[in-house]
Design a protein around this nucleic acid. Structure first.
Length: 627
DNA sequence: ACATTGATTGTTATT
DNA sequence: AATAACAATCAATGT
């Protein structure tokens, strides 16, 4: 699997920093062994899960035209235009074997979903507009109506005893961020999910693309896991079934499933679309959980609820739209399903994946629809998934990173065992091989992030359980991404954008514990736009993204720039008053290539260089290590 | 009531 | 009986 790191935002930084001498390749690959599914040479998708077996008819990825690959590509191309980095792709694809890879593809390559920008805050830090970086549906055409991320200040103290284990969470690295942010990008995902089982896969036909880790798990479990198709013959029933499900095959036919008052639902029946909130929950919880493995469901739930509350109406609308779209799809699928049922003879094929077309010849018992796959929880298929982005990213990806088993979580081991914990070595899998050493931590973070669907959450920190996040979240500031944000004159440039604009990434800032350490040396994280945010030193600034650069900044501490996504074409929120480059006090100028952070290309280059150097230093590596 | 996730527990079926 | 697989339950919250 490959995890896509969208680094196109700061094209300058990215280019500069990752254009290694002699190496013109833009691919950065972290390889590790144990990639069951993918080899470095293999493409991200299609873990050969047996498309053949299911013969899943390709379906359109996303009804949303905006998601078409061509659009994406073209869009991406636009990004490259003009900028010095035009030649450099803006995306990174991390490859790993985590089935969830699909989720990571959610990052819209073109848009700054991962536009990580932390707003500087004072004291309580306002929770700025909830701008979860999720797009849903319109990754391409939609511009960030606001790039202001949502920031949640979470008291460290609370954090420590609540969601996070001790140090488990400290930060969500960029990859995670990107992963999280991208969350449901492709509006199609949801639709795809909601589609009838008949067309569960993406147009690409690659299961991996449309399947999330869960799906993949289920998929493997139900199909791959040593399950040669077996023909079981039982009284009056001939069923074709995967070995794994042998029992159901016969038992179902002979003796109806455990009759528990409830009627077993036909697995083929389209699933009802879930609510917007549910979608949000899905997208968000993963991030929360990812960073807070110990978080209980209740805690997560509270946080999600708080986030939901903080979410601007616009962002909610995004989800709602998704839901609506899914509903439409559901209705369609349902109609088709019903029609199909009516026309379906009593012949049933037992234990076959829900892909009706070309049903294997089989004589079945008069039983109702024997579940191809017992509708167990594990088999349920999420209704939304960032599938299309897979394609999108593929098309635009430039950096490919082979990740080790992504789900490793050293501390708690909460996640699936990592295939390898060896130090992560970044080895370019493409053209030229550039070796970059990436701290294991970073990789792990990346892995963790990609473990699940990338939710919007950017910087997730521990949060206290009971009191809803609201307590942790200090004064919610005007939601930047609101439909009419900053109306009137605010510095924020309202980007009257399409309603489908993907909300900016949500960020939760860790607020120094009451112990008032006054944040010794706060880490300032700034967005491309320059909005800084402070974080405690403890907060590991893990930037999974290669583009992330850390630069030592004079008094304040460090400045971390996480440039994960392409700058929204729409005017970003107020940028810095002066050029971001240290030492330069010129006012930033508007540019297509950056978010009003720099005054000139020169400063961009210089700044990036500095940042990169600093980053190397922080990483304990000489900049030369990265050759 | 049901949706979100995931751990746990209970039930059922198979060996 | 032991084991495996499946199903239900629970948590907090929103629709």
């Amino acid at each position: 699997m490959r995890y896509v790191l969208n680094v196109s935002h700061c094209l300058y930084c990215f280019c500069f920093c990752w254009q290694f001498p002699g190496g013109s390749d833009n691919y950065l690959a972290i390889s590790e062994e144990g990639h069951p599914f993918l080899s470095s040479s293999e493409t991200f998708h299609t873990p050969s899960l047996g498309d053949e077996e299911f013969e899943i008819p390709p379906i359109s990825l996303d009804p949303d035209p905006a998601l078409s690959v061509s659009d994406v590509v073209s869009h991406f191309g636009e990004l490259g235009d003009g900028g010095p980095s035009s030649s450099v792709p803006g995306n990174a694809v991390v490859e790993g074997d985590d089935p969830s890879f699909a989720s990571t593809f959610v990052n819209p390559p073109s848009q700054g979903l991962e536009h990580l920008s932390l707003m500087s805050q004072q004291g309580g830090g306002p929770m700025l507009g909830s701008t979860l970086g999720m797009d849903l549906g319109h990754p391409i055409g939609s511009q960030f109506s606001s790039s202001s991320p949502m920031t949640i200040d979470v008291p460290l103290t609370d954090m420590n005893h609540s969601l996070l284990g001790h140090n488990q969470l400290t930060t969500i690295d960029q990859s995670e961020l990107s992963a999280q942010l991208g969350l449901s990008l492709g509006g199609g995902t949801i639709l795809a999910r909601s589609q009838s089982p008949d067309q569960p896969l993406s147009a690409t036909g690659s299961p991996s693309e449309s399947l999330q880790d869960d799906d993949m798990d289920d998929f493997r479990r139900s199909v791959l896991v040593d399950s040669p198709v077996s023909l079981s013959v039982s009284p009056g029933v001939i069923s074709l079934s995967p070995s794994l499900a042998e029992q159901p095959a016969t038992s179902v036919a002979v003796a109806p499933p455990t009759l528990k008052g409830k009627k077993k639902k036909d697995p083929n029946e389209p699933q009802k679309p879930v609510s917007a909130y549910a979608l949000f929950f899905r997208d968000t919880q993963a991030a929360i959980k990812g960073q807070n493995p110990n978080a209980t469901f209740g805690e997560v739930s509270k946080i999600v609820a708080s986030m939901w509350d903080s979410l601007g109406e616009e962002q909610k609308q995004v989800y709602k739209r998704k839901t609506e779209a899914a509903k439409k799809d559901y209705l369609k699928a349902l109609a088709a399903y019903r029609a199909n049922q009516l026309s379906q003879p009593t012949i049933e094929v037992l234990d076959t994946p829900p892909s009706p077309p070309a049903a294997p010849a089989a004589v079945a018992a008069p039983e109702p629809p024997p579940p191809a796959q017992p509708p167990t929880r594990s088999s349920r298929i999420p209704q939304h998934a960032p599938d299309n982005n897979t394609i999108t990213n593929i098309c635009t990806s430039n950096i490919i990173i082979d990740l080790p088993q992504v789900t490793t979580r050293s501390r708690t081991g909460a996640y699936k065992p990592a295939a390898s914990t060896a130090a992560a070595n970044v080895t370019p899998t493409l053209p030229t091989v550039t070796k970059i050493i990436i701290p294991k931590q970073q990789l792990q973070s990346m892995a963790a992030s990609s473990a699940r669907q990338p939710p919007p959450l950017q910087q997730m920190q521990n949060t206290p359980p009971p009191p809803r996040l609201q307590q942790m979240v200090h004064s919610p500031a005007p939601p930047p991404l609101q439909a009419k944000p900053r109306g009137g004159g605010g510095a924020g440039q309202v980007t009257a954008t399409v309603t489908t604009a993907p909300p900016p990434p949500l960020q939760i800032k860790i607020v120094p514990a009451p112990v008032q350490t006054d944040v010794a040396t706060p880490i300032i994280v700034t967005t491309a736009a320059g909005a800084p945010v402070s974080a405690t030193p403890a907060m590991a600034v893990e930037v999974a993204q290669p583009a992330a650069i850390v630069t030592a900044e004079g008094e304040e501490g460090m400045e971390v720039e996480l440039n994960g996504s392409p700058a929204p074409e729409v005017a970003p929120p107020a940028g810095p008053a002066v050029c971001v480059r240290a030492g330069c006090n010129n006012p930033p100028i508007e540019s297509k290539d950056w978010d009003r952070e720099y005054c000139s290309n020169e400063c961009v280059a210089t700044h990036c260089k500095d940042v990169f150097m600093a980053w190397c230093v922080i990483r304990g590596q000489s900049s030369t290590t990265v050759t």
